[in-house]
Nucleic acid binder design. Structure first.
Lengths: 156, 156
DNA sequence: TATTGTTATACTCTATAACTATA
DNA sequence: TATAGTTATAGAGTATAACAATA
């Protein structure tokens, strides 16, 4: 704020480091044959099996047509299945295949490698402090703990 | 790391909050008639007047053709000028117009509004701590202090 | 008539290669 | 022959509207 004697750069640093973090994660999972977007979808389906495409679109903050394309890709890779709803046959329920489930521990490993890579300049105490502050920011900003909306904006 | 008893989420939180920060900034400058990418270019030219398009492309981490499109837009809005190099007529040197320079304090205001908006859940002390940690991360990761590469990745 | 998913279309950002004018 | 900028083209991600099947 005005009382502090430094330029307002937290927003800029968050944008910059957020982009960098996404790049590092994309690199970490490249050998798994999926993109960061696909990894996000897999995580959500793992957390809420049977979720409909509409509910997934709403969680991702994207349109339904984007979900169609994403699921087409994941279905083609045999990671996700679509099942028509028994009571409402308009809905498609999404679930992980056995192959998809086998990806989950690898995604967790990738997240750990990403964190190690990102925070290698910090002490354990600093890493813990940073985690606390980012969690506080995220929850106070009412952002979903499973999802973030993806990169729509552009460089600042 | 393995010794810490929490999931590896710093990378995820940085991505999520970075996207959110970029969205907030885009909203703050929308009334100025420029995008976040254009604001970034204006800031760089303000900092290094006479920079060539090639040098700008390298700073942005983008291709030269993207710079052509960006400068076309800024020139059309009368915010930036191109001047052929006197000694090497292949080069285009970029400078802000008077109108462009008048935007600078408004961009600073927008950055302050963004920071206030982003960190409204934090105490002054927490805000100062967060700034320290993010600065440390950014400098240890060797990221440019003026620029970040923009959003190329997608949701995770 | 409304809703779920699908298809079609367009717009932006990005990346690459071909082209020009200068060196 | 190499370089700075430009143009053309194609690919991803995104958003919107039109459409089919179902409710």
């Amino acid at each position: 704020m005005a009382s502090e004697n430094r330029p307002a750069r937290i927003g800029f640093l968050l944008s910059q480091l957020g982009t960098h973090a996404a790049d590092v994660f994309a690199d970490e999972i490249q050998h798994l044959g999926i993109t960061a977007s696909e990894a996000g979808v897999i995580r959500i389906i793992a957390h809420t099996p049977g979720i409909t495409q509409r509910a997934l679109a709403s969680k991702l903050g994207t349109g339904q047509s984007r979900v169609v394309a994403l699921i087409d890709g994941l279905e083609h890779k045999d990671l996700v299945t679509r099942t028509r709803g028994a009571t409402d046959r308009r809905q498609q329920h999404l679930d992980l295949t056995a192959v998809g489930r086998r990806l989950l521990p690898k995604l967790r490993q990738a997240a750990e490698a990403q964190e190690t890579e990102l925070t290698q300049g910090l002490t354990d105490q600093q890493r813990a402090d940073l985690y606390e502050l980012l969690s506080l920011l995220s929850s106070s900003r009412d952002l979903d703990s499973d999802v973030h909306p993806g990169y729509r904006g552009t460089a600042r």
